[in-house]
Design a protein around this nucleic acid. Structure first.
Ligand SMILES: [Mn+2]
Ligand SMILES: [Mn+2]
Ligand SMILES: [Zn+2]
Ligand SMILES: [Zn+2]
Lengths: 145, 145
DNA sequence: ATATAAATGCAAATCATTTGCAATTAATAA
DNA sequence: TTATTAATTGCAAATGATTTGCATTTATAT
C-alpha cells in the first residue's frame, strides 16, 4: 500500500501520524497471516525500530477501534491476533494438528441469519465462525481422510 | 439428574468420586446458563462447600477432558465458561448491549461443510459459531429494529 | 488394613494485557 | 518560527485468569 494511503487512514481516524503507527500498519498490510502483539513487537525490533511492548498494545488498540486493523480472538490462542482490515468478510479454518490458520472468503450464513430475523426476537448484526480440522499437510502426515 | 447417573459418568471416566466432582456436575446440570470457574466457586461457598479455587479449575479441566462438561470460550469474555454437556450440538447468540447469551439448537453449516470437503484440501471436523446482536429486551430498550 | 495413585489446599508463578505517571512529541494556533 | 496543548510514549508496576510445585489427604483396589 502506498504510504500516502496509510497516512490518510491515520488522518481520517483523527490520530497523530507517528512512525510507529505507520510502521505497524505497513507491517500488517504486508503480512500474509495473523500476527500477535509480540510478533509485531519482535518484527519491529528486527527492523531496528525500538518500541515498547505497551505502546504496541496501545497502538493496536487504537487502530482496531478505528477499523484500520482487526483484532481476532481464536479459540485456544491465548494471545489476540491482528490482521490488516481489507474490508472483506471472511472466516477461518484452523488445523487441530499444526495450528495453521487458513482464511475463507465466503460465508454460509446470509440466508440463515435472515431466517433467524424472521423467527426470533434476537436481532443479529454479525457473527463469527471458526472451522476446525486438518490442513492438507497434516492430513497427509497423519493419514487422516 | 439422578445422582447415580452422575456417579456413573465419573466412574466411566475413570475418575475418583469426590464430593467436589459430584457437586460441580450437579450444579452445572441444574444451571440454566453458562458459568465461570469463579461463579462455580462462589456457588459452592454459598452452599457451604469449601473448595479451593485451584481445585475448581482442576476439576473443570478433568470434567472437560472427559466430555462430561463443555468449556466455552466466547469473544470478549476473558473467563472461560462451562456448561453441562447435553450432547446436543448448539451455538450462541450474544447480546452486544447486555451480554445475555442465548442458545440455538440448530446448525446452518452441515451442507456448507460438505461443500468445503468436496472443494478444499482442509478436512473439517468441527466448527464454532457465535452470533452477535441485540436481545429482545435490549431491542426494546434501545429502540433497535 | 495396606498400598498406591489421584485429588486437594495453599502459596507462588505465569503470561497476556493494562495502567499510572512523568517525559516526549505531533498538531495547531499565534 | 515559537508557543501551547493534548496525544503519545517508555518504564515499571499492577491486573486477573489460570496454572503449578509440593506436602498432605483421600478414594479405590488388593
Ligand atoms: Mn460470515
Ligand atoms: Mn453447528
Ligand atoms: Zn495442519
Ligand atoms: Zn441484551
Amino acid at each position: 500500500m502506498k504510504k500516502t494511503n496509510i497516512l490518510k487512514k491515520i488522518e481520517n481516524a483523527g490520530l497523530k501520524k507517528t512512525k510507529y503507527r505507520v510502521n505497524i500498519i505497513d507491517l500488517l498490510e504486508k503480512a500474509d497471516g495473523l500476527l500477535s502483539a509480540s510478533d509485531i513487537h519482535q518484527l519491529l525490533i528486527d527492523n531496528d525500530i525500538q518500541m515498547d511492548l505497551s505502546t504496541v498494545y496501545r497502538t493496536l488498540e487504537k487502530l482496531t477501534e478505528n477499523n484500520i486493523i482487526n483484532r481476532i480472538e481464536l479459540e485456544k490462542e491465548k494471545q489476540s491476533l491482528y490482521e490488516y482490515n481489507r474490508e472483506k468478510h471472511h472466516h477461518f479454518m484452523i488445523c487441530k494438528s499444526c495450528n495453521k490458520i487458513e482464511t475463507i472468503y465466503d460465508c454460509p450464513l446470509t440466508k440463515y441469519e435472515e431466517d433467524i430475523k424472521a423467527h426470533s426476537d434476537f436481532l443479529i448484526t454479525g457473527h463469527k465462525i471458526e472451522f476446525y480440522g486438518y490442513c492438507k499437510n497434516c492430513r497427509k502426515r497423519l493419514k487422516i481422510n
